[in-house]
Computed example of a mutant assay.
Amino acid sequence: MSLTALLSVTDLSPRIGSEIAIDADTLLGGGHAGEIRALLVRRGVIVIRDIGLDDDQLRAFARTMGDLRLGTVKKEGDEGLLKVTMDEKENPEYAKFFFGSQLWHMDGTYEEVPPFATMLTPRVLSNTGGNTLFTNNYAAYEDLPEEEKAFLDGLTVVHTMQAALFPAKRDCTPEEFAMWSGYPARRHPLVWHHRSGRKSLVLSTSASHIVGMDPTDSHDLLQRLMAHATQPHYVYRHQWRMGDLLMWDNTGTMHRVLPFDQASGRRLHRCTLNGEEPIGGAA
């Protein structure tokens, strides 16, 4: 039977995002993991309201969906669970980078094989702001004119840490900018040819420039594509409430958090699944 025949599924917007109704025991049992994964790839974002998973349950659910990410260059939190917060007391290693999450991005553009998917559940929320937005990079590519698709298909983009963070912190110190510049650059195709046969745009604020293109033309093209991909009809806006579980397909979406009161101590707990295919094509 299909997922929709077994569970209640409600689309949250026409092009991206679905909400499913399922209890914790059924979810953690893993019997629907394959169907949920298929829905995730098709719809980009899945929301489960009022499920209230604790940290151990969040890890357990992630493992039903794929290979739990324990760490690459740096340790991925506590046994695969990372605290997403700007409070350096809660996360001294990563908090100083999370301001960049307020700009459109996909995770792991510094890797050959970016993470497949991420799960988030809130622990502390701000009274104002803090909604998280997601955009469908599959749909944004599919809606482009055929001539432009053919042109974009041959382009390679350089992704850097300074490109990702400087737009969100223009008053950074020279030392901060030097630290960001010390991270390696990574080249990715602008169009991801997925093993499924589908294609998506590989867009992120980390996109510095297009290889071999005049810098001003490169800037203008990347800005135009970002504006195209983030039009309202490609976007799902999630208003958080306690007890939520939200997951997204990092390989076919971008996301960003809207500004919030940093004194609120806003904190979400995250589990991430390791990537399963390189952007550059099947290895």
Rank of each mutant, 00 (worst) to 15 (best):
L155Q: 02
A163D: 05
T135C: 15
P232L: 01
R195E: 10
P114M: 04
Y138L: 10
H194R: 15
F99E: 06
V158R: 15
A163V: 01
V158T: 15
M213W: 14
P184Q: 01
S181P: 03
E147K: 14
G108P: 03
H159K: 07
E146C: 01
A117G: 14
A164Y: 11
H209R: 15
K199F: 07
T109Y: 09
V124M: 12
M161K: 12
S218C: 08
F166D: 09
M106G: 12
L133R: 05
L120E: 08
D220E: 12
R170L: 13
F116S: 11
N136F: 00
T109F: 06
E148C: 04
S181N: 13
G100K: 05
T132Y: 07
V158K: 15
P215V: 06
E176D: 09
S126R: 06
G212W: 09
G197R: 12
H233L: 03
E111S: 15
H228L: 06
M213I: 14
M119L: 15
W104L: 00
Y141F: 15
M226I: 02
L190K: 09
R170E: 10
P115W: 00
A207L: 10
M161V: 08
W192S: 08
H188G: 12
C172S: 07
A227R: 11
S208E: 13
N137C: 12
L144K: 03
